[in-house]
């Protein structure tokens, strides 16, 4: 098992399935009257959030607490970080406090890699979203949700399933992590976006791309709508919110073109009326709320496998930091 979770590409098929299977077991905990396991008692998990994301932070917090870890929430707002303290000094401080795992959310792509590779902390580093790069636990919870609906058994991957991801791929960490993980799990991924919102070099990704949403719906087992920020139109990525909605939004007419078993997903927070209509968001085929529930189980599984007995003593080495 890996020691950090920086990118969905870090996971091979075996590791990915192991996380999903573990999450399946842990999902049962949430339905018990007492939602707590003693696994990480005495371990310290830090939520290091340089960017506001209440949803992701409370999901990780709930996951760590259900495993009995001590949780420290470190928000950049109102802390020394806003007074100019560097990422390095913040990390050294957390290290001095004995963090066993650092869950980092940062506006700068690659910040979790710096934290892990510069060895400013000895704890496991978990990427909770970095800039426009990756969000690996989101991809894991998405894969977990798809597997529950489309495969319905543990120990398996998503071989042969067609997943259509629609929207601002260029700026989306969710799309990057999903493309990598779904490929590892054997799914066929189609990215749909206006040409301005597909990254240069996307032809090297293990995906298909399309500019035409309607043509990409009929074979989809799952369709994932990405959040599109209206301010993108001010940078001329598309002419107007209305035009974007018409060409790339998911409404009931388009929902009708999906196969009857297909599910509708969204990583949240949604712009209702922009990339997805309220009717579709609340439709019986939508699994958006379930994704949130599954997020806690998947994050429990990640913490359990990175910090649990299986990965050995993380405090064994005695390297100095200066």
């Amino acid at each position: 098992m890996i020691t950090n979770l920086l990118s969905a590409g870090d996971l091979d098929r075996t590791d990915a399935i192991r996380i999903l299977d573990t999450a399946e077991e842990l999902l049962g905990v949430a339905s018990r009257p007492i939602k707590k396991l003693p696994t990480l008692r005495g371990r310290t998990v830090v939520n290091l959030f340089f960017e506001d994301s209440t949803r992701t932070r409370i999901s990780f917090e709930a996951a760590a607490k259900r495993l009995s870890a001590d949780v420290i929430n470190f928000s950049a707002k109102g802390s020394s970080v806003s007074k100019g303290e560097s990422l390095k000094d913040t990390a050294l401080t957390l290290q001095a406090m004995g963090a066993d795992a650092v869950i980092i959310r940062h506006h700068s792509s690659g910040a979790p890699h710096r934290l892990a590779q510069a060895r400013w902390t000895k704890g496991a580093v978990i990427n909770a979203g970095d800039g426009t790069h990756e969000h690996p636990t989101q991809a894991l919870l998405d894969a977990f949700t798809m597997r529950r609906h489309l495969v319905e058994s543990t120990g398996t991957d998503l071989a042969g399933k067609n997943v259509t991801i629609v929207g601002d791929v260029l700026h989306s960490r969710v799309a990057r992590s999903n493309a990598l993980l779904l490929h590892t799990l054997g799914a066929h991924v189609t990215l749909v976006a206006p040409p301005t919102l597909l990254p240069v070099g996307v032809e090297h990704w293990p995906v298909e791309t399309s500019y035409d949403l309607d043509a990409s719906l009929e074979k989809a087992d799952a369709v994932m709508m990405l959040r599109v920020q209206a301010e993108r139109m001010n940078a001329s990525y598309f002419p107007s919110a209305r035009e974007y909605s018409r060409r790339y939004g998911l409404d009931t007419a388009r929902l009708g073109r999906l196969p009857s078993h297909a599910i509708v997903m969204h990583p949240g927070p949604m712009n209702r009326g922009m990339e997805i209509t309220a009717d579709v968001a609340d439709h019986v085929r939508s699994v958006i709320v379930e994704q949130v529930t599954n997020g806690v189980a998947v994050r429990m599984a990640v913490l359990y496998l990175l910090l649990g007995g299986a990965s050995g003593e993380p405090e064994a080495s005695e390297e100095g930091t200066s």
């Binding site: 690659g110 426009t132 260029l170 960490r173 990254p199 240069v200 070099g201």
Partner: peptide
């Protein structure tokens, strides 16, 4: 700007 900038999420 090239395949790697797209992959790394850097402008």
């Amino acid at each position: 700007e090239g395949p790697l900038s797209g992959e790394l999420g850097l402008v």
